[in-house]
């Protein structure tokens, strides 16, 4: 975690210097502050929700449906669950983190994130609105096996590593 903070700070400062050459660094800092201020309430509520979900999920459920032992069931659950998470990253990620903390396997978590990123319900209205249902069905049809493949690969890695 500390190394991630240092990497982000280092990159952030590097980009501040790069933007400073065109005088846009101030606007970037202002954007950061405005965005953080805007999403802060969502982040705080998401953390409370995630903490509760972590406490609520029964161990038996995790073992049966989400953990490494669940096998491809976990990947399938992750893919369906991820596509149903109709929220932005600030709200979805703490929930995914709580499922991970509760003991979910790599396959489940990777499928959850990938399915949320590729066909989360929060993006579908925009996509169908701008490009139509046919475009969306083609995209989802092509994405689905790739998403499940990534989850299955993560599950295999989990088995090999453990």
């Amino acid at each position: 975690m500390t190394s991630s903070i240092l990497i982000f700070l280092g990159l952030g400062l590097l980009f501040v210097i790069l933007n400073a050459r065109s005088g846009r660094h101030g606007r970037g800092l202002n954007d950061s502050r405005t965005m953080l201020w805007g999403v802060l309430p969502v982040i705080v509520v998401a953390f409370v929700l995630a903490g509760m979900v972590e406490a609520l999920i029964p161990e038996q459920f995790v073992r049966q449906w989400l953990a490494r032992e669940a096998g491809m069931r976990g990947v399938l659950f992750g893919t369906v669950g991820g596509s149903l998470l109709a929220m932005g990253p600030y709200a979805s990620f703490p929930i995914i983190a709580s499922i991970w903390s509760a003991g979910a396997g790599w396959g489940t978590v990777i499928s959850l994130i990938t399915a949320w990123a590729l066909f989360g319900l929060n993006k579908m209205p925009f996509e169908i609105g701008f490009f139509g249902l046919r475009f969306t069905l083609i995209r989802v049809g092509l994405c689905l096996p790739l998403c499940m493949g990534a989850g299955a690969l993560a599950h295999l890695l989990d088995l090999v590593v453990s």
Binding site: L29, G51, S101
Partner: peptide, 25 residues
């Protein structure tokens, strides 16, 4: 549940601040 939320949030705050600095730039 509240304890879980508090501990995760306290651990994530520095990283969230650094992440937003990066995103804005």
């Amino acid at each position: 549940g509240f304890r879980n939320a508090y501990h995760t949030m306290v651990r994530a705050i520095p990283l969230i601040l650094a992440a937003f600095l990066l995103i804005g730039q």
